[in-house]
Computed example of a mutant assay.
Amino acid sequence: MTRISVREFAVVSATAVTAVGSVVGVSSADSTPDEDTTPTAVGATLLEDIPVGRQARAQTASLGRQAEVQAVAADVSALKDAEATARKAAAEKAVAKKESARQAAEARKRAQEQEAAEGDTAANTTTLAAQSSYSTSQVQAMARQMVPSGQWQCFSNIVDHESSWNYRAVNASSGAYGLFQALPGSKMSSVGADWQTNPATQIKWGLNYMNGSYGSPCGAWSFWQANHWY
């Protein structure tokens, strides 16, 4: 079988393009094409150069080439769509991962806060068996069970300056009483009726007072250092 020459293939392809151009020319606003650019005459002249028996084969080859070009274009379009879908999925996955990490961090924070609150509650309910008197070391041991470790030194500093850990200390001029020199001392009854004799009751009251008025024992100690009272 005789092969179609490159020139014949080009002629048929040009003829097809010329034909398309003719149709577009008829549909355009200028319905009178220029004589110098009339595609039909050019196409006809070119086709006459190809033997009649080989024109059909050339046209078939041209159509096949056009189909290949269209297939490639379709593959490129599909690849672009796939890449866009993959990018979107990756972005959504990253957002979901970030949200999951945020929720996990919040859950850990809530658990820590709950654990700290439970620890404070347990500390505030810790007492020794009631007895007629308590040594300084016993009072300090009670306080260590009730005061958070990170606040202990500030708490201890205040008690050192106010009463030297004497839970029965009384200010002769003002009547302030106890470890924290509460004035009047009877305000500690809000925690327990045994406020005069039970250092645990006084410690509970003092810790509540520091937290409520200054946010923490260290907040209270900072104020004490600046004003020498709290």
Rank of each mutant, 00 (worst) to 15 (best):
T2L: 12
R3Y: 08
I4G: 03
I4D: 02
S5E: 09
V6I: 12
V6T: 14
E8M: 05
F9Q: 13
V12Q: 02
V17P: 02
A19V: 11
G25A: 15
D30H: 13
T32L: 14
T37Y: 05
P39C: 02
T40P: 00
L46V: 03
E48A: 13
I50M: 06
G53A: 11
R54T: 10
R57S: 10
R57E: 12
A58V: 03
A61V: 08
A61F: 06
R65F: 14
Q66D: 06
E68Y: 11
Q70C: 05
A74N: 11
V76D: 04
K80R: 12
D81S: 13
A86Q: 15
A91D: 12
V95M: 09
K98W: 03
E99H: 10
E99D: 15
R102H: 10
A104W: 00
A105I: 07
A107G: 09
A107T: 15
R110T: 15
Q114R: 12
E115I: 06
A117Q: 13
E118V: 05
A122Q: 08
T125G: 10
T126Q: 11
L128G: 11
L128E: 14
S133I: 00
T136V: 14
S137D: 14
Q138W: 04
V139C: 03
V139H: 01
Q140H: 04
M142Q: 11
A143E: 05
A143D: 02
R144Y: 08
R144D: 05
S149I: 09
C154E: 01
I158D: 02
V159H: 05
W165A: 06
Y167V: 04
A169T: 06
G175L: 10
G175K: 09
A176F: 05
L183T: 10
P184S: 07
S189C: 03
S190E: 10
V191W: 00
D194M: 07
D194V: 06
W195K: 02
Q196V: 04
Q202D: 09
I203G: 01
L207S: 01
L207F: 04
L207H: 02
L207R: 06
G212K: 13
S213C: 06
S216F: 01
P217I: 00
P217N: 00
C218H: 03
C218R: 02
G219A: 05
A220T: 02
W221A: 08
W224Q: 08
H228M: 03
Y230F: 08
